[in-house]
Simulated assay, not measured.
Amino acid sequence: MPTNEHELPLEMVRNRPQLVPEMLRSVFGLDVSTNARATLASESYADTNPAELRCDATVLLGDPKSPVLGVVVESQLRALRQKTYSWPAYLASLRLRRRCPVVLLVLCPDQATARGCAVPIDMGHPGWVLKPLTVHPEMLPPITDPDQARRLPELAVLSAPAHADGPQSEAVLRGLSAAIGSLTGDTGALYHDYVMSRFSDAARKLMEDIVKLDNYEWQSEFALTHRAEGFAEGFRQGFAEGFAEGLAKGLAKGLAKGLLLLLEARGLDVSAGVRARVEGCSDSEQIERWIWRAVSADSAEDLFD
């Protein structure tokens, strides 16, 4: 299951290719039909050179056999010089194979990275300059309509951290709740972990309050499980049992229970040793550090590295 900052935006594209034309329309104003079919294509481009060209993702608009547009999608955590050579090759190979116009869309975590990746690439031939289309969360529109959020939950998840503390924060988080609640399987848990790790403390608290006050009827398997076994229940039980022993001990116990639930929700094996160490810890700040690590850890043991 992908969890890191590079892979998850790509997983969103693979889960819902329609996210790509939506961003091209809303961010760059490209004339892309709202009814155009969006499908994934091979990410590998064969060449006469034995080395294989492989981009992060490819989306075709229209009929996959005769597309009207091909989009090379790349996820970048920082600007890299070698990409100024590989990106033009991806576009040229895709254009050759599919016989259609092509564009390059680069997903970036922040404005600085997007600015660095957007530097025009001078190909040397007069007038031939590639200008990458780069996007970061602040460029995405706030998704405040729950119906739109359910239709494109990935767009709601990607844009929410940039708007969760703004003037439309409550509407954005209500839309996000609807988006996550509409997902099935492990996808909801994956997106939930991703977006909550990028929220401020205030946004996380507001998100919890909105879900609780609205008594939102979750639809997905993840959401039903999360509602029954999630953080809120863990904290409530921890506090209820802990008040008799002291507020500090109760807080640590609630945090420990929430951490173990998070590990289990992510499908990570929790050994008896890990469980004993977590439940035996009375340092609330230490457990909070473990919770942040648990969002992207590959194993439960990684919490203690």
Rank of each mutant, 00 (worst) to 15 (best):
D147E: 12
F243L: 15
S66E: 03
D110W: 04
K83G: 08
A171H: 03
Q168E: 14
A57W: 08
L260S: 05
T39I: 09
F222K: 00
M207T: 04
L213W: 03
S66K: 14
S177R: 13
H192D: 10
L303Y: 07
H136W: 15
F239S: 10
E5V: 07
A92Y: 03
G242R: 06
L8D: 00
L91S: 05
T58L: 15
S75T: 03
E221K: 12
Y191L: 15
D305Q: 11
V73L: 11
A36G: 11
R95Q: 14
S33M: 03
L24Y: 05
Q148T: 12
V129G: 07
V157L: 04
L104A: 13
G124F: 05
G273V: 04
W128L: 15
R97P: 00
E245P: 00
R81S: 13
S197D: 10
S271Y: 03
A223W: 00
T184D: 14
I291R: 05
R115L: 12
M139I: 03
A276V: 00
I180T: 05
L80R: 15
E279Q: 14
S26V: 05
G127E: 06
G62N: 07
P141G: 02
V106A: 09
R54Q: 13
L183A: 06
F199V: 04
T184L: 02
L61N: 06
K205I: 00
L133K: 11
L251T: 12
F243A: 09
L224Q: 14
L24H: 04
W290V: 08
